[in-house]
Write a protein that binds this DNA or RNA. Structure first.
Length: 823
RNA sequence: GCCCGGGUAGACAAAUCGGCAAAGUCCGCGGCCUUAAAAGCCGCUGCUCGCAAGAGCUUGCGGGUUCGAUCCCCGCCCCGGGCACCA
């Protein structure tokens, strides 16, 4: 008989067809006594075809989903597409192909490949964010936010990308450059839509404690929110009779304030300078400063610049008149756009004072009494620093003085405790075509800004000829679409032509999956209660701030509107590492791209998926290796071949027989593997690499004992190996399990390890002398401490080392070792 | 500068509670099968000394705690990531 070979091309389509026709992964919203598990991977952005990073994300998620199903959960594991966005639009500008068509093609490619990978998706809940049936509800949520005052329009200095011709959210600017295309951004004064995420700063911060996320992701979010506690202190300009509050985290240094600085964008800068000798210089400086790119201005190494305003303000604690200046190191967007400068205790103020020869007055000293270095500011955060030259507060420890001075200011009506955040409101307008239209019209008569009625949603995205951005949205060219009658008075009105940031679309999609077919509401609250929150969310760490913060904000805002019952969308988060090749990120320009389609064709989806999970811990970056793929393929082929041979040479129901030593050995190994894999997958562990290694060990043991073990034991061991590998290699797992048992593995409960079989009757006792291993002897599992010591002492090589010396201590670790300490 | 990760054989990695360092995979070497090759199967594989038994060394570097440290503590070096003129 010719030997058959493992052929993934035959096995994989066969099982994919079974899963599709039997709708194996669909889950209903009906009552079900099993506990729920909502397993979700971040939805893909459909551009071109899936890359290796997608394969990793969905291999991880699918392993979790399968494990949850087989451990008795009803599992929601859906899929969708984040379909609006710039790449499709830029492609349209270049080729003329409508973004909708390019997106459709790409989605088709993703769907095909997800099926070829054998990912267990409930396809009845599939969605794409560019479909009117979805974005209708994105617009609905926008209107809800608007009703509550959480969506608002204001003119502000915003970041503008000259290449993409659109404004960007604060979060989408990195080092002064557009996150997407790398072009230095400009600052423009524009009227735009914002979401009031800053209202939620404290809750976004506090609730991080309630979710199981990687600590570094939480840290990134905390840093991004950037909560600072301090005080607002009022400095008064007596000449003009105007109060200028400033924010400081160090009210204890108030006596050291020797000057006062305003941001160039501060609206009072020109009025203040008017009529002074500095008026012209101030105009020149401000005009130059506002033209600087964010990158230039943000450069910390840049020398400090600024000019005097020719005015003074009064320091409220000591009545001292200090000069006012304007300088670009002060930001209009943070605090009040003006600061009190304490050069002795703030490095930036120190640098500025040095450059402009302004006085530096120390008011805080180290506890040691030692003089701090002269050439830098003394920040001192130990808590033991004390105040000097600070009037009635002199001698007070610094932290106490913060409180005392704040209280004093409050009593005098010159300030109060205050909190500031680095987080800014979320700018959601985009002057681009391929996005969700903002459902607002502007009445030409007297109604002003009017929301589109809920019944008139969706506001559908019109077709246009020219996608190219011209600094206003391409939608403005769709005359018939823009002209509309006012929902309020029926008069002439114009539609808002900006679209929404695509992060809006993806801030609620996990809610829609729960009730994807609902055409009367975005979701039914009772249905949402059955599934939310997502129990395990999986995706790349690159979304640690943007997407994950926005989604949390949406859920909190919607909960406040009494539309859902959870405070956090994602109870647990797993962030996977990148797959590199030759140590570098895969990219077309480097020519080091491995496409999932190629590897699935040549080696099969099971091999590709197993390899990606076997390569190393999934939260770490890992380097792709072609020979590593071969190794995993060999392992799967060996498991299949052993099963095929065993199935062919023995009956499915072999007669019971007295177990041989080999049978017992194999049985032990089988239960060891069950235990190992179960622990590696359970309890939020993502140790797929060691789980797969354990199945490899079991398979190797089967191979070694295939002649000596009886068919029954061999069948059990191999079927168990198939059952354990199934979450990672579902096609092969199903095939092998069926070959040996005639059953469908995914309908079987997860195997349970028999405690009694995890321990053997004897083990190898490690015998140490002074902490060094000198011998190993077999010991009975139930031996007492004294017996173990006796065994150890009689081991030949131990005797040689103990000979003629005094044993001063015996350390016994039952089940492991004995250590004799000798002198 | 601040905050997170990480550093273990030739490569990727394991060691779950302080208890045998290196499971598993790749690479390499040897053997079996074969006319030959492929596939498959079996074995070897940290360094030094030694015929061997064995001994010494080894988890980035230096110290500490401990009967015992990859693991805990202190100091330092290197790599990766995040934040950074946020008062």
């Amino acid at each position: 008989m010719a030997e058959r070979r493992y052929d993934h091309r035959e096995i994989e389509p066969k099982w994919q067809a079974v899963w599709a026709s039997e709708r194996s992964w669909e889950v209903s919203n009906e009552d079900d006594p099993r506990p729920k598990a909502y397993v979700l991977e971040m939805l893909p952005y459909p551009s071109g075809e899936p890359h290796i990073g997608h394969l990793k994300t969905y291999s991880v998620g699918d392993a979790v989903a399968h494990f949850q199903r087989r451990t008795g959960h009803r599992v929601l594991h859906p899929m969708g597409y984040d379909a609006f966005g710039l790449p499709a639009e830029n492609n349209a500008i270049k080729t003329g192909q409508h973004p909708r068509d390019a997106t459709r093609e790409s989605i088709g490619q993703f769907q095909r490949e997800f099926r070829e990978w054998g990912i267990s998706i409930d396809w009845t809940r599939e969605l794409a964010t560019h479909e009117p049936s979805y974005y209708r509800w994105t617009q609905w949520i926008f209107l809800k936010l608007y009703e509550r005052g959480l969506a608002y329009r204001k003119e502000a200095a915003v970041q503008w990308c000259p290449k993409d011709q659109t404004v960007l959210a604060n979060e989408q600017v990195l080092d002064g450059r557009c996150e997407r295309c790398g072009t230095p951004v400009e600052v423009r004064q524009l009227e735009q839509w914002f979401f009031r995420i800053t209202d939620y700063a404290d809750r976004l911060l506090d609730d991080l404690d309630a979710i199981e996320w990687p600590e570094h992701v939480k840290t990134m979010q905390r840093n991004w929110i950037g909560r600072s506690e301090g005080a607002e202190v009022v400095f008064r300009c007596e000449e003009l009779g105007i109060d200028y509050p400033v924010f400081t985290t160090r009210p204890d240094t108030l006596f050291g304030a020797t000057f006062f600085v305003m941001a160039p964008e501060h609206p009072d800068v020109f009025p203040l300078a008017a009529g002074t000798e500095h008026e012209r210089a101030v105009h020149e400086y401000v005009n130059e400063a506002v033209q600087e790119s964010a990158e230039e201005r943000g450069d910390q190494d840049k020398a400090k610049t600024g000019v005097p305003l020719g005015r003074t303000v009064t320091n409220p604690v000591n009545g001292e008149e200090v000069p006012m200046l304007v300088a670009d190191y002060v930001l209009m967007e943070y605090g009040t756009g003006a600061i009190m400068a304490v050069p002795a205790h703030d490095q930036r103020d120190f640098d500025f004072a040095r450059a402009f020869d302004l006085p530096i007055r120390r008011v805080v000293e180290p506890a040691s009494g030692e003089a701090p270095p002269e050439d830098e500011a003394f920040a001192g955060h130990s808590g033991a620093e004390r105040l000097v030259d600070s009037g009635e507060f002199t001698g007070m420890p610094s932290p106490e003085a913060r409180q005392a001075i704040t209280d004093w200011l409050d009593r005098e009506g010159k300030g109060h405790a205050s909190v500031n955040y680095r987080l800014r409101d979320w700018l959601v307008s985009r002057q681009r075509y391929w996005g969700c239209p903002i459902p607002i019209v502007y009445c030409q008569a007297d109604c002003g800004m009017v929301p589109v009625g809920e019944d008139d949603l969706p506001v559908e995205l019109p077709d246009v000829e020219d996608y190219a951005p011209q600094g206003r949205s391409p939608l403005a060219a769709a005359q018939d679409w823009v002209q509309v009658s006012c929902p309020s008075c029926g008069g002439d009105a114009r539609r808002e032509t900006d679209t929404m940031d695509t992060f809006v679309d993806s801030s609620w999609y996990f809610l829609r999956y729960c009730d994807a077919g609902n055409d009367r509401a975005p979701w039914d609250r009772a249905v949402l209660r059955r599934w939310m929150p997502v129990d395990q969310y999986i995706g790349g760490v690159e979304h640690a701030i943007l997407h994950l913060m926005y989604a949390r904000f949406f859920v909190k805002a919607l909960a406040d509107m009494d539309l859902l019952d959870v405070q956090e969308p994602f109870a647990k988060l797993f962030t996977q590492g990148m797959i590199t090749r030759d140590g570098a990120k895969m990219s077309k320009s480097k020519g080091n791209v491995v496409s999932p389609a190629t590897i699935v064709e040549s080696h099969g989806a099971d091999t590709a998926r197993c390899y990606i999970l076997f390569i190393g811990p999934p939260d770490q970056d890992a380097d792709w290796s072609d020979s590593g793929v071969e190794g995993v393929h060999r392992f799967l082929a060996r498991l299949w071949r052993l099963a095929d041979q065993t199935a062919a040479s023995s009956s499915a129901d072999p007669p019971p027989a007295e177990p041989t030593d080999a049978d017992i050995q194999l049985l032990h190994k089988t239960h060891w593997a069950i235990d190992k894999v179960t622990r590696d997958l359970g309890d939020g562990r993502f140790a797929f690499n060691t789980a797969i290694a354990a199945v490899m060990e079991l398979t190797n043991e089967c191979s070694k004992l295939r002649e000596s073990a009886q068919p029954g034991a061999l069948r059990f061991a191999l079927a168990t190996a198939a059952s354990l590998i199934f979450p990672f290699a579902p096609h092969l797992g199903s095939e092998v399990y069926e070959l040996l048992t005639g059953e469908r593995v995914w309908q079987q409960p997860w195997p349970e390890a028999d405690e009694a079989l995890l321990e053997s009757e004897t083990y190898e006792l490690v015998c140490q002398v002074n902490g060094k291993v000198r011998d190993r002897v077999p010991a009975p599992a139930e031996a007492s401490g004294q017996e173990l010591v006796a065994l150890c002492r009689s081991a030949p090589n131990v005797r040689a080392h103990v000979e003629g010396r005094e044993v001063v201590k015996e350390v016994v670790v039952p089940g492991r070792l004995v250590n004799l300490v000798v002198r």
